[in-house]
Amino acid sequence: MDPRVAEIADGIYRISIYVPEIAPPAGFTFNQFLVLGDEPLLFHTGFRRMFPLARAALARIIPPERLRWITFGHYESDECGALNEWLAIAPEAQAAHGQTGVMVSLNDLADRSPRMLADGETLDIGGRRLRWIDTPHIPHGWDAGVLFDERTATLLCGDLFAHVGDGPAVTDGDVVGPAIAAEEMFRASSLNPGMGATIRRLAGLAPRRLAIMHGSSFAGDCAAALGALAEDYDRRVRAASA
């Protein structure tokens, strides 16, 4: 598992670890995103047992002790398993998450007190601002949320558009079809009536990049891709309700 590092937008780096044993024969990637600024931010901590690999990869970009903010989409091992390992090596770092995530998990889990982000609140990391958006149960997790980098219009969208395989760091190809196929495989989403509306709200941000946690990031008509994904979830909810 040799981590790969690629700059997917100005000052946003994807650290990718490919695990061929998951969802064979295609395999599965676990991606973390480093967002540079005066106060660098890491989105997704990665698994605790993968921490040495992720730390070494991040060190190719900046000294890990410079990290100031650590956040993630929702409470799950691949998203936040190594949170305290990162806090231990970055003395000024602080976890940040939405209200539900802080109250339900991080107030107890994190070794240092976290910062609570309100829905729509922006986090200024020096030279760029990232907006936290609550997305409860989208695609799963009561505490789920995403971050939107206003400078590059990159949506750090977590498990949305998750797909199998070990593709390029960034693609302009289809990410909706592979995401639908992965949902058929894993059945990971928490189907609920608000899914389509929540995802269309993200499309309203007019993102130019999708930083996807599992699979290639996407550069293209992100609003159209989000709209198509919302339509598929609407279809699933209708079918489940029939």
Rank of each mutant, 00 (worst) to 15 (best):
P114T: 03
M116Q: 03
T29R: 08
T135L: 07
G204M: 07
L226C: 01
T29D: 07
R4C: 07
A225L: 02
E184P: 08
A88Y: 06
R49A: 14
G46P: 12
W132H: 13
D234V: 02
V19T: 13
I138N: 06
P20A: 05
T100Y: 14
V176K: 12
A162C: 12
Q99V: 15
A144P: 12
P91I: 01
R68I: 08
L160Y: 04
I180V: 10
L226Y: 00
F30L: 10
M116N: 01
L147Q: 10
G177Q: 13
A57K: 06
I17Q: 03
A223V: 04
E150F: 06
E7K: 02
S189V: 06
G165M: 09
A203P: 15
R112K: 04
A223G: 11
A242W: 01
R49F: 11
G27R: 06
R236C: 13
L160S: 00
L123N: 01
M103E: 14
P114D: 03
V35T: 11
L130A: 04
G196C: 02
A26N: 06
G127M: 00
P20L: 01
E184W: 07
W86G: 06
D174M: 09
A57C: 11
P20Y: 03
E85L: 12
S217R: 00
A95M: 08
L191I: 14
G204W: 11
A206G: 11
P63E: 13
D119Q: 04
R48Q: 10
L34N: 04
S217V: 02
A223H: 00
A239P: 00
A228N: 12
F43Y: 12
A224P: 04
G98M: 05
A88T: 04
M195R: 03
A240Q: 10
V102W: 10
I61C: 14
W142R: 08
L83Y: 08
C80D: 12
A162R: 10
H74I: 09
D38W: 01
F161R: 05
D10E: 13
I89K: 05
R236V: 00
L106A: 07
I70L: 13
R66A: 06
I70E: 03
R112A: 13
T45H: 14
M103G: 14
A153S: 10
R49Y: 06
M50H: 15
I133Y: 13
G215I: 00
V102G: 08
